[in-house]
């Protein structure tokens, strides 16, 4: 049983936001529009956070792509009163849209801000509905529940079926989430953290490796490699 994890190399990241867009396409995340965007109602399973500090010519700019961290000790799962958010057997923090009561305790408890409440029903303008990803786990969510990054679980399933058809086991690199596949700087890596030889576990052992807000004991399964 793999334990899925992701590595994001901030030194290779170009802040292009391709991950953000690819994620929204792949996972049928609806468009919020101007009003809802400025009112804080837009949903980003993956988001690039800008951090620009300093003044004059002494500025430091940093851009942090932020998917769900899929913590080993997820605070969101701990606080969910109905078990609508849960950690699946492969370490992915998932959301059961049919069970969620919309109390938003998990959104409050997530230190990373990776969970989004869908304040309104998803809408697709006319012909825009045509491009919706038909894969079942990516179907648009009903209004009033919390949604989040799934590590593109539908792609994991697809990879499994493909591999099964080929009559072999999953190998490193078989599963590629949308954000990883599109990343132009090749800054994102995905794989099995329990497999010592996988690319992600090798990178996770890098001296540049860092897990955000590690002191909270959440043990994120998304590991960042620092710049410089």
């Amino acid at each position: 049983m793999p334990r899925w994890g992701m590595v994001i190399d901030l030194d290779k990241c170009t802040a292009c936001q391709s991950c953000t867009v690819a994620c929204r396409v792949e996972n049928n995340v609806p468009i919020a529009g101007q009003r809802d965007s400025s009112n804080g109602r837009a949903i980003f399973w993956n988001e690039v956070i800008p951090v620009i500090e300093g003044d004059g010519t002494h500025l430091k700019g940093r851009f942090i792509p932020r998917p769900c961290m899929h913590c080993e000790n997820p605070p969101c799962v701990q606080v969910c009163p109905v078990g609508a958010t849960f950690k699946d057997a492969e370490g992915i923090v998932r959301q059961d849209y049919q069970r969620c009561i919309g109390c938003r305790y998990c959104t409050v408890a997530c230190p990373y801000g990776a969970r989004y409440f869908n304040w309104r029903a998803p809408e697709f303008a006319e012909s825009h509905a045509s491009y919706r990803n038909p894969d079942a786990p990516a179907r648009p969510r009903p209004v009033g529940v919390v949604e989040k990054c799934t590590f593109c679980v539908q792609r994991i399933e697809r990879a499994r079926r493909r591999v099964a058809a080929e009559g072999r086991e999953l190998r490193d690199g078989d599963v590629v989430p949308a954000c990883v596949q599109t990343c132009p700087g090749r800054a994102r890596f995905f794989g099995d953290l329990d497999d010592k030889h996988s690319q992600v576990s090798r990178l996770a052992r890098s001296p540049r490796a860092l897990r955000f807000l590690e002191d909270l004991g959440t043990r994120p399964q998304v590991i960042y490699l620092m710049e410089g």
């Binding site: 998932r94 049919q98 079942a136 969510r141 399933e157």
Partner: peptide
């Protein structure tokens, strides 16, 4: 939309698998 979506969820994820 919401009516059409009522069938998603964990059970369906499993089914899809």
């Amino acid at each position: 939309t919401s009516a059409g979506l009522l069938v998603t969820g964990r059970s369906e994820l499993k089914g899809a698998q």
